[in-house]
Write a protein that binds this DNA or RNA. Structure first.
Lengths: 183, 183
DNA sequence: AAGGCCATGTAAGTAGTTACATGATTGA
DNA sequence: TCAATCATGTAACTACTTACATGGCCTT
C-alpha cells in the first residue's frame, strides 16, 4: 500500500499536476517505487475522494491541467503511515528464476543475457551517481537532517546496483562458455 | 510472467504435489520469487489446462493429494522462456518511501524501524548462509555447471542482503537521535 | 483550421493478496 | 470417534499493466 503514500509525499514536497507527478516518478521517486500515469491518475482520484488531497478543479477536466495539493488530513495520514511497522517484501528477480531454470534444463546459454543485464544495471548506477553528484556535492558530512535522509535513500539505490554488478561480474566467468563468434 | 515458469522449473527438478511445491517456495525458490499456496494451485490448474503439465488425478480432488509432473511441451516452453530477453523490473522498497516521507515531514522517528529491519535482513542473510554451508560446502571451485548456477542464485541473495545491511548500518548513525530510554 | 503534442482519463486483462471453505488423514 | 492437521480449493478484492480514447493547446 505504498503508492498513495508515495504520492502524498511528493505532493507534500511540492503541489503538482498528475503529469508532473508522473514525471517525478520517472526521474526520482520511481527509482524505488515506480508507477505509470494511469496508476497515478486513478490514485489521485481516490485520494481526493477520501479528502486527503484537493485540486483546483473539482470536476473531471479532460485535457485541462489540474493541480493537486495535500490537505491536513493527508499529512496526518502520511505521518501515521511513516511511523507504522511494515515488513520488507521479499525480493522478486525474474533473472534468478531464469538462471535456476537454466540450471535445471542443463543446456541453456545465459551468459549473453547476463551481460545485457549488466549493461542495464550499470546504466542505472550511472544515473544514480550523476544525481548524487549534482544534488549532494559535499559528500554528505554537512547536510541537514532532511537532506541526509534523501541522500540515504539515494545511497540505497547505489548500494543495490553496486552489489548486483559485483555479483554478476563474479558469476559471469563461472558460466559455461558461449559459442565463439567470428570476427 | 515468472510464476508459471518458476513452477515448471520446480517440477522439472522433481515432480510434486501442490503442497510440496508450496513448501519448496517457502524454503528456496521463494527467496527470489515468492508465491502463496493459492497462487500455486491456480497456476497449476492453468498449466494443466494448457497441457504443459499433467497430474495423477484429472478431476478436482479436494483433500486428496494430487501429483504433478512436467510434460514435453512444458519443458519446451521453459527452454524458450529461459532464452528470452526480459528487462529487470525496478526495485520496490516501501521502507525507502517511508524514509523519503520522513524527510519531507521533518519530524518522524525512523531509527527504531530501521533497526527492526536490520534484524529481519540479518535473519534472512543467516538463512542463506546456512543453506550455502550445507549445500555448497566446498567453496564453489569444483562444482559442476548446474550446481554452479544454483550456487550463483544463492550468492545473489547473499550479496543483496549484505549490501542492504551495509547500507542500513551506514545510515543508522546519521539519523536524528531517538528519545533516550530509561534503564 | 489542421496536425501534433500534451494532459487527463477509460477499459480490459493479469497478477498478487487475504479470508475463508471443504474433504481426507492421522492419532489420541 | 472426534479433534487436529493437512491438502486442495473458492471468492473477493487490490494492485499493476497494456492498450486505447478524448479534449485542450500551440504552431503553422
Amino acid at each position: 500500500m505504498s503508492l498513495p503514500h508515495a504520492i502524498l509525499t511528493s505532493l507534500l514536497e511540492k503541489p503538482a499536476s498528475g503529469a508532473e507527478l508522473a514525471r517525478r516518478f520517472e526521474k526520482s521517486l520511481g527509482y524505488f517505487w515506480s508507477a505509470t500515469h494511469q496508476q497515478i491518475y486513478r490514485e489521485l482520484a481516490r485520494l481526493e475522494e477520501a479528502g486527503l488531497i484537493e485540486s483546483s478543479d473539482r470536476e473531471s477536466t479532460r485535457g485541462r491541467q489540474r493541480h493537486y495539493s495535500i490537505r491536513g488530513s493527508g499529512r496526518a495520514e502520511l505521518e501515521q503511515w511513516s511511523r507504522a511497522q511494515e515488513d520488507p517484501r521479499p525480493v522478486r528477480d525474474a533473472l534468478l528464476v531464469r538462471l535456476r531454470a537454466a540450471a535445471a534444463l542443463g543446456t541453456v546459454e545465459v551468459a549473453e543475457e547476463l551481460r545485457r543485464h549488466i549493461g542495464l544495471h550499470q546504466g542505472q548506477l550511472d544515473t544514480y551517481l550523476a544525481i548524487e553528484h549534482s544534488d549532494f556535492p559535499d559528500g554528505g558530512s554537512a547536510e541537514h537532517p532532511s537532506a541526509r535522509l534523501q541522500h540515504a535513500v539515494l545511497a540505497a539505490g547505489i548500494g543495490y546496483e553496486r552489489a548486483w554488478l559485483a555479483w554478476a561480474r563474479d558469476t559471469l566467468p563461472t558460466l559455461p562458455r558461449d559459442p565463439v563468434r567470428t570476427g
